[in-house]
Amino acid sequence: MKKFARVFAILCALTLTLTACSSGSNGDKKDATEATNKKIGTAKDGDEMKIEKASMKLVNAKEKGKYKLVGTEELKKWIDAKEDMVIVDTMPAKSFKANRIPGAVNAELPITMDKVTPEQKDAYIKALGDKKDKKVVVYCGFVGCERSDVGAVIAQEAGFKNVYRQPGGIIAWMDAGYDVEKDK
């Protein structure tokens, strides 16, 4: 897994380098400032460091938690194909009622493992069902939200074998323009 983190970091650096090269940058400070002012990169607000920090936090959490990741587009394909899975929204009930990925169940979890109560853990594991081989997809609000990490770790510890975290959460789902369910 350390190799994966190194490869990821190298790919990020290479992407940034190629982006700068393709924009005509010769590496001086003026070009960097112009690139920032044009908002080149991934971050809508031009602050690529926020994206990098969130990415590295995600990669490290995935390695530590020993679960898999699934992107928003891939999850949509799974849903459209009616794959046998349980999708768990770990956000508070108010958020779940307002917008959720179709077919998701709600099992609110805190942002860190040390804040999980025995009642929350039991309710969450109950929401996953009894089939340990069934695909489990956990999500929360957005990449920086760690409720889905907590859920993925608990599922792994409970013996579920096909645990996925959808890191972009409901925000990425809505950004992709996919339909949401909501309470009336």
Results as ranks from 00 to 15, higher is better:
Met1Leu: 09
Lys2Asp: 14
Lys2Gly: 12
Lys2Ala: 14
Lys3Asp: 13
Lys3Met: 10
Phe4Thr: 14
Phe4Cys: 07
Phe4Ser: 14
Ala9Met: 12
Ile10Cys: 12
Ile10Gln: 12
Leu11Lys: 08
Cys12Gln: 05
Leu14Asp: 05
Leu16Phe: 14
Leu18Arg: 08
Thr19Asn: 08
Ala20Asn: 07
Ser23Ala: 13
Asp28Phe: 05
Lys29Gln: 08
Thr36Leu: 15
Thr36Arg: 09
Asn37Cys: 06
Lys38Met: 14
Lys38Gly: 04
Ile40Thr: 09
Ala43Lys: 05
Lys44Leu: 12
Asp47Glu: 13
Glu48His: 02
Met49His: 01
Lys50Phe: 01
Ile51Met: 04
Ile51Arg: 01
Ala54Ser: 11
Ser55Cys: 14
Ser55Pro: 03
Met56Asn: 07
Lys57His: 09
Ala61Ile: 05
Lys64Ala: 15
Lys66Arg: 03
Lys68Trp: 01
Thr72Ser: 07
Glu73Tyr: 12
Lys76Val: 03
Trp78Thr: 04
Asp80Ile: 05
Lys82Thr: 08
Lys82Ala: 15
Asp84Gly: 02
Asp84His: 03
Val86Thr: 15
Asp89Gln: 01
Asp89Ile: 02
Asp89Val: 04
Asp89Ser: 03
Asp89Asn: 08
Thr90Glu: 03
Thr90Asp: 02
Ser95Glu: 14
Ile101Asp: 02
Val105Asn: 10
Asn106Ser: 11
Ala107Gly: 08
Glu108Gln: 15
Leu109Pro: 00
Leu109Asp: 03
Asp122Phe: 07
Tyr124Cys: 02
Ile125Met: 09
Ile125Arg: 01
Leu128Glu: 06
Leu128Val: 07
Lys132Asp: 12
Lys132Thr: 13
Lys132Met: 14
Lys134Asp: 05
Lys135Phe: 04
Val136Glu: 07
Val137Trp: 04
Val138Cys: 13
Gly144Val: 04
Cys145Phe: 07
Arg147Thr: 04
Ser148Thr: 08
Val150Ser: 06
Gly151Arg: 05
Gly151Phe: 01
Ala152Lys: 00
Ala152Pro: 01
Val153Pro: 05
Ile154Cys: 04
Ile154Lys: 03
Glu157Cys: 08
Phe160Gly: 00
Lys161Tyr: 00
Asn162Leu: 00
Gln166Thr: 05
Pro167Gln: 02
Gly169His: 12
Ile171Ala: 13
Ile171Gln: 14
Ile171Arg: 13
Ala172Val: 03
Trp173Met: 06
Asp175Tyr: 06
Ala176Gly: 06
Gly177Asp: 06
Val180Lys: 00
Glu181Pro: 04
Asp183Val: 12
Lys184Arg: 11
